[in-house]
């Protein structure tokens, strides 16, 4: 009996907090009018917003993947001064408000910032343009690959790498043939999570982009824009697409998780 009541409470909580709101998605789009939602989705500015979002992800994800693997290798396999600090800085974006991230970049590259004047002189637009948005996206999604790879590296240990060395493999050969294949599922999982974070980022990008319609507006900023213009159908329509991506990502995540332990 007790078991059932525990289950009931747990699932009830999930229903109220998670599933309830989620179920609203289709219903609201339907209630606000599918036609209106479609109009909003096919608006060139919306298309552009999705394009900007994808561009950001396309730049940030590969960079963070390489960075994450390098950092994880450094943290697990090497001893060097300042390792604790590196560890802390890699985790910081997880605990930090994206608004603080956005503001920091804004202050660094703004008119009176350390780097702002230099870039202005050389005619490079950083703020309210793609470069600062890329930096913001990279910042908030830095930790994910490293956090997935670090425990996997610890678990596999370095014996296989040593074995490869005694068999004549160079450091580079060992990385490609032994280390990378052993951590591949962790890397892929990290990439999936990083991608999700990049697509969904709002706070940091909101500050540095200036949300200029048709130029620096991302998909999530577009959701807010439509909402504030009282075009709820549009807002829910774009949300539906974003949620569809999220659910796709989620399916990938659950598919990848159990396979880690197997091979």
């Amino acid at each position: 009996m007790r078991r059932y009541s525990v289950r009931f409470v747990a699932l009830g909580y999930l229903l109220v907090v998670l599933l309830g709101p989620l179920s609203m998605l289709f219903w609201r789009v339907y209630a606000e009018g599918v036609g209106k939602a479609w109009t909003a989705l096919t608006d060139p500015d919306t298309g552009h917003a999705f394009k900007v979002t994808l561009e950001l992800a396309a730049i940030a994800v590969p960079l963070n993947t390489i960075f994450g693997i390098v950092v994880a290798l450094a943290i697990v396999r090497r001893r060097f001064p300042g390792k604790g600090l590196l560890n802390a800085f890699v985790d910081l974006p997880l605990a930090l408000s994206p608004v603080v991230v956005g503001l920091s970049l804004y202050l660094l590259y703004g008119r009176t910032g350390w780097f702002g004047p230099w870039f202005t002189q050389h005619g490079v637009q950083v703020l309210f343009a793609l470069p600062s948005m890329v930096l913001a996206t990279i910042f908030v999604s830095v930790p994910f690959v490293a956090r997935e790879v670090v425990p996997t590296l610890r678990e596999i240990g370095d014996e296989q790498e040593q074995a490869a060395h005694t068999l004549g493999a160079s450091g580079w050969q060992t990385f490609w043939r032994i280390t990378l294949p052993s951590i591949r599922w962790a890397v892929i999982y990290g990439v999936v999570v990083t991608t999700a974070r990049c697509l969904g980022e709002y706070g940091a990008v909101a500050i540095v982009s200036g949300s200029i319609q048709g130029k620096t507006e991302t998909a999530t900023l577009r959701v807010q824009e439509e909402f504030e213009n009282l075009n709820l159908a549009g807002s829910y329509g774009i949300s539906l697409v974003l949620a569809a991506i999220a659910i796709f990502v989620l399916v990938l995540m659950t598919r990848l998780r159990p396979r880690e332990g197997v091979s």
Partner: peptide, 14 residues
């Protein structure tokens, strides 16, 4: 895991 994958602004809207 959905809240990790879903843009938070969408969560707000929902």
């Amino acid at each position: 895991d959905l809240p990790f994958a879903l843009p938070t602004i969408v969560a707000g809207l929902l």
